[in-house]
Amino acid sequence: MNHLDKLEAQSIYILREAYREFKNICMLWSIGKDSTVLLWLARKAFFGHVPIPLVHIDTHYKIPEMIKYRDELAIKWKLTMIYGENSEALAQKKTFPDGNADRLTCCQMLKSEALKNTLSGEWNRYVMDHKTGKYVVDSNREKYTGVIVGVRADEEGSRSKERYFSPRDKENDWAVEDQPPEFWNQFKTDFAPGTHIRIHPLLDWTELNIWEYIERENIPITSLYFDQGDGKRYRSLGCYPCTFPVESTAKNVSEIIEELKSGKFANIAERSGRAQDKDDGGGLETLRRGGYM
């Protein structure tokens, strides 16, 4: 087994543990490369089926190609595709691009708040109707108690301290100092009512591993990661007002791998194009304690 086989096996093991333990479980799909790898792993874990609904939090400031790609793949792979949003903040224009909130507050409202209320079922969820390809209000409002997330430990300081199975309390808060122990492959999946568990199958993967795996498995990835001829590409995807492309002429996966291994990005952090991290004093801790992934 090479290192990718081992990472794959461990992630699939975690996905199957999660599916067995939680009745109401969902997987967050940000449309980015990491959660798309996670989706690919789920298809492998369950022999081509994805028995877990995919949830996307739509801030309506996502790069438009992301939404198109999401819906195309949802149809092709027959996914239970759900999105949620903070319709109130959007209607009242309480956002950073509208000039009515700073970056952190905007993230908290459009992402963290929307996520919290979508997971709990308090706000509307919209599910894709595969007959029409359109989204309709989901009649299922049951709370998700298990949430699978594609964060990696190498991305940022607070993510380096996550467990594979990590509890969040009723308020969505993360008690970093009081996480349950995890021995070998034994995961604590039994928690108090009202809490939910975040499951992190990709914790041990690095950015480079993700790209090597995408290349090996030929996973379809949104073209935003590649240079379209203007010498720019995205290294990390988010909302367009706060995510900036990097100067790069990598046009395909193998050129990205080369760039990460020996080229100009070998020593530059992946999220350096994400403005909200800088507003949080160089990390994501404040946002993440409040429910950001």
Partner: peptide, 21 residues
Amino acid sequence: LLDALKDEQAQGITIDTARCF
């Protein structure tokens, strides 16, 4: 470089295990 959490830096201690690559 490792004690990334605000509480950890404030108290000068490591609270939780970190993975470094």
